[in-house]
Simulated assay, not measured.
Amino acid sequence: MSTREVVRGYHDARYRGDVAAAVARVSAESFSFRSPFVTSADPAGHLAGLEGFLRVVAEVELISELYGESEATLVYDVHTATPAGVQRTAEHFRLRDGKICTIMLIFDAAPWQPMAAAIR
């Protein structure tokens, strides 16, 4: 699979709540995930709060996709039914042997601080 197929497959699966399909695109051997709220080396563990988060997501609007041979960056808006409203998000991926080995999720976490416990 191409970098685009792997990364978009992960992204699309995650936002439709299909954890198994998202995890299938992640390296089981060496993985790291970092966001303002979660740091994880577990290919499935970083998606542990996904169900709660998706309950407040109304739409995901992809703004930009940039793909290289072994890395990708997605920029998108997450439209939520929360006081946070629309969350501009950037996500950088590194791939090794056709699987995602690193994800860095970047967004302004300040609007989410008061809601974090309720979403989990």
Rank of each mutant, 00 (worst) to 15 (best):
F31Q: 04
S70V: 14
E29P: 05
T39F: 09
D42C: 10
S32L: 07
A21S: 15
A72W: 00
T73H: 13
E71T: 15
G52Q: 03
L66C: 08
I63T: 04
L47M: 09
S70L: 12
R25G: 03
T39W: 07
A24D: 05
A21D: 06
P36G: 06
G45T: 06
S35I: 01
V38W: 06
E69F: 11
S32D: 06
S35Y: 01
I63D: 07
S70T: 15
P36C: 09
V23I: 08
E59Q: 14
S27E: 09
L66M: 11
I63N: 03
V57R: 06
F33I: 03
S40W: 06
E65N: 10
E65T: 01
A20I: 07
F33Y: 15
R34S: 12
A22P: 04
L74A: 09
P43T: 03
H46Y: 15
F53Y: 14
V56C: 06
V56D: 05
E61H: 09
S70Q: 15
A58M: 09
A58V: 12
V60Q: 04
T39S: 14
A21W: 01
E61R: 15
A21M: 01
E65H: 09
T39P: 01
V57D: 05
V60K: 00
E71N: 14
A58T: 09
A72N: 03
Y67H: 02
A48Y: 03
V57K: 00
E71Q: 14
G45Q: 08
R25L: 14
L47I: 13
V60N: 06
S70W: 11
L74F: 15
H46G: 00
R25K: 14
R34V: 09
S64H: 14
F37N: 03
A44P: 07
F33A: 04
E51C: 02
L62I: 12
G68D: 09
S70P: 05
V56T: 12
V60D: 08
R34D: 10
P36R: 00
V38Y: 03
A28D: 10
S27A: 13
A22N: 03
G45S: 06
D42W: 07
E61W: 02
V56I: 12
E61L: 10
E69K: 12
F31K: 01
V23Q: 06
R34E: 11
E29K: 11
V38T: 13
T73M: 15
L54M: 04
E51S: 15
A44L: 04
S30E: 15
L47T: 02
P43N: 05
T73S: 11
Y67N: 02
E29D: 15
R25T: 10
S32T: 10
V26C: 05
D42H: 08
L50N: 05
I63H: 10
G45D: 02
A58N: 07
R55T: 00
L66E: 13
S40L: 00
L62E: 11
A48L: 13
A72C: 12
L66Q: 10
A20L: 04
L66A: 09
L74Y: 15
A22M: 13
T73F: 02
A22K: 02
A20V: 12
R25I: 09
F53D: 01
